[in-house]
């Protein structure tokens, strides 16, 4: 809970809204609708880029340099396995009962046969991951995504996803177990390792996108927002978000 308060608190401190564009500039209006909190988001983004340049990027490169691929795969598998109970609960909340059974099978298989989750035995025997989150559950329930938000350190998000992260933070079994045992700091370490592991696995693509963009903030926002539309059930959307008029667009 404390972690969530820190994130949201720092966001509120930076609070600033863009004013809606005046006149008939359709392009500006479209941009405003896509990102009404842009001034605040750009500030957080700038902060994140600084942290990325001076901390995350070098640490992730260092992590890649000192560990062989097999170790990094093991770390990713271990972290993914710790997340399976969260996926299980959300499979149920999304009424995906078959998937919840699969998730239980994966968790038990990987925990006991995969040495505490270091080896992904389940995927190798044909039981794929059904990874999902509480923010996806909210999407399935029809909860609107809300304005785009850039979270400190965590990057692109929206109100729905931030709420999902908040709920997951204080219902995460690892957090609850650590709190009971009086070793809450263990969760910070787990989160820190996860951030570095995720950063390392997206290092090449991320740096390539960053280098090639004339406005990286917008590239990240556009990519995130489009990808989020995938979460909506087909009957909720009239047509896929990637379907737009190509020839007649202004």
């Amino acid at each position: 809970m404390k972690r969530f308060v820190v994130i949201v608190g720092s966001l509120l401190m930076l609070g600033a809204c863009a004013s809606a564009p005046k006149g008939n500039d359709a392009e500006a209006l479209r941009a405003y609708r896509a990102d009404p909190l842009e001034p605040m988001n750009r500030q957080v983004f700038k902060f994140n880029m600084t942290v990325d340049t001076y901390v995350l990027d070098p640490v992730a490169k260092g992590y890649r340099f000192i560990t062989p691929q097999i170790v990094r795969t093991g770390v990713n598998n271990f972290l993914n396995n710790l997340y399976e109970p969260v996926t299980f609960v959300n499979n149920l909340l999304q009424f995906e009962f078959e998937k919840s059974v699969q998730t239980t099978g994966r968790f038990l298989t990987n925990t006991f046969l995969g040495v505490a989750g270091v080896f992904d035995v389940a995927t190798n025997v044909g039981v794929p991951s059904n990874k999902t989150s509480f923010s996806e559950t909210l999407a399935v329930w029809g909860f609107p995504e809300g304005p785009y938000l850039v979270l400190p350190l965590l990057g692109p998000s929206n109100v729905r996803r931030t709420m999902g992260l908040g709920v997951e933070t204080f219902t995460d079994p690892v957090y609850l177990a650590a709190e009971n045992a009086g070793v809450e700091n263990l969760v910070w370490i787990k989160d820190g390792v996860r951030i570095i592991a995720v950063k390392e696995s997206s290092l090449d693509l991320y740096n390539s996108m960053k280098k090639d963009s004339v406005d990286f903030y917008t590239t990240m926002r556009s990519t995130f927002q489009q990808n989020q539309k995938k979460l909506l059930e087909p009957d909720v959307q009239e047509k896929p978000s990637y379907e737009f008029e190509f020839d007649t667009e202004e």
Partner: peptide
Amino acid sequence: IIDIVVENVSMALNYRNEYSAFLQA
């Protein structure tokens, strides 16, 4: 080919958003 959509992300729309933000500014 006029567009490539990767995991629901349209490349054409991404470029359009990026260039439009740049040109607006």
